[in-house]
Simulated scan of single mutants.
Amino acid sequence: MSDTMGQLSWLEGGAERSAQWRSESGWPAPKKVVVADDTMNADTAYRLALEGTALLWRGDFQNARQLLNALVRRVEHKSDRARRAKAGKGAAKGGAPTPAELFHRHRLQQLQRARTLAMLLIPFDAGHAIPLRRAPDVREACLEAYGPADSAYVASLRELLGVIGAHEWRRKGVRIPALDANIHPWYGVFSPVRGEYVELVAQAPLPKATASMTRAFDIGAGTGVLSAVLARRGVKQVLATDMDARALGCARENIARLGLAAQVDVIQADLFPEGRAPLVVCNPPWLPGKPSSAIEYAIYDPDSRMLKGFLAGLAQHLEPGGEGWLILSDLAEHLGLRPREQLLGWIAAAGLEVAARHDVRPTHGKASDPDDPLHAARSREVTSLWRLRTLS
């Protein structure tokens, strides 16, 4: 049994036990929990996970990783069969699914996949130590992601591997050619791996109103990469805003690493800071939709809230002659989620006009992968920097 307040309960050795439940995805603790170890085979584990029964691991940690890999193979095999079956039914009915239908189907499969794979649980002692044979030392990685742990808790192995991966990204950083330096993303803060949008900000002509290079706003700063680019381009003061505590800490750390703290001020604000600037930059989430985890807030914008909020408030935060730079992919258009006409309507309704637009094709692997479920849309995707100004 479990409740939704972060407590996991289970029977073990004839006694009821409990521990804190931790889920960055915001999922409630599993209602059914069985104790599992090295004697459990992959088929049994997969059946239990599909039924919504969580497996609290008491065996060798490395064997748990192997079991998770086996579960991944079974989930992917099931997804492939389901995709072929639906494609056959569509052909039999004489109609292929629309891009939007493909997208929603893909999202549902991804969510179901994540929930199934999250059923393999790992116990933690206070201080983030794992009381299992051959368990790695994950204390530093978990401290970065979760903060201090004063009591025992349980989390999914899949989430833990994400925490470990994020720790390595944070330690090594991501190379940003426009900065000739690395940006170090934190766990839960979207990494600037798609460099095309960074290059757009690095190369777009600055508006005439920024000739003195005095001030710019970076709305939704994330890792702080765009603020750093603007500072390196000579902007004397950049006000970077975000609402997420991790993003604020991450941006401040990156700005300090780059020696730009005197130029960039990272503040907590919902969209705009006070005042006006000759340049206001925003790279909102590109797809309208409901995030299923914390990291997906950088990808999915419920009801296009951030996009619409940026456009609606831009005019009152621009200095005369200034520009708002909206960095946005058109993937939502190709998926049938948001037509171009709707975006143009929001721009016009906000008293704005398009001064120019700079486009670039993405170069990430999925854009050229014919086996990707959304390949038809991704292959036509264009990332744009929309240069917006108030109507004269």
Rank of each mutant, 00 (worst) to 15 (best):
S2L: 01
D3L: 02
T4V: 15
T4S: 15
T4E: 15
G6T: 08
L11S: 12
Q20S: 13
W21A: 06
R22P: 02
S23G: 09
E24M: 13
E24A: 14
P28R: 09
A29T: 01
K32F: 10
V33N: 04
T39M: 13
N41G: 14
A42D: 11
D43Q: 11
T44G: 06
L50T: 10
E51I: 11
G52A: 04
L55P: 05
F61R: 09
A64Y: 01
R65N: 15
R73S: 14
V75L: 04
D80T: 14
R81V: 12
A82H: 10
R84N: 12
K86Y: 08
G88F: 11
G90K: 03
A96M: 15
A96C: 13
A100Q: 06
H104R: 06
R113M: 12
P123H: 02
A126N: 10
A126M: 11
I130G: 00
R133W: 12
P136W: 09
D137C: 01
V138D: 09
R139Q: 08
P148I: 00
A149C: 05
D150P: 14
A152E: 11
Y153F: 13
L160Q: 00
H167F: 03
W169H: 15
I176L: 09
P177S: 06
N182H: 14
H184R: 08
H184C: 07
P185S: 07
Y187T: 02
F190V: 07
R194T: 09
E196D: 06
E199Y: 01
L200N: 03
A204P: 03
A204S: 00
A204G: 01
A209G: 03
A209E: 06
A211E: 14
S212W: 10
M213Q: 10
T214S: 11
R215L: 12
D218K: 01
D218G: 10
G220E: 05
G222Y: 05
V225A: 00
L226N: 15
S227R: 03
L230G: 01
R232D: 11
R233W: 09
Q237V: 11
A240S: 05
T241F: 03
T241L: 04
M243K: 13
A245R: 06
A245C: 03
L248P: 07
R252M: 05
N254Y: 10
R257D: 13
L258H: 06
G259Y: 02
L260E: 05
A262H: 14
V266W: 09
V266Y: 01
F272A: 03
P273R: 07
G275Q: 07
P278N: 00
L279C: 00
W286Q: 10
P291Y: 04
E296D: 08
A298D: 07
I299A: 14
Y300D: 10
S304I: 03
S304K: 04
G309D: 09
F310Y: 10
L311R: 02
A312F: 08
Q316N: 10
G324L: 02
W325Q: 02
L326S: 07
A332I: 00
A332D: 04
E333Q: 13
L337W: 02
R340S: 10
L344N: 06
A349R: 13
E353W: 01
V354F: 04
V354N: 00
A355N: 06
A355F: 05
R361Q: 13
R361D: 13
P362S: 09
G365A: 14
A367P: 07
S368C: 12
D372R: 05
P373A: 07
S384F: 04
L385Q: 02
S392L: 13
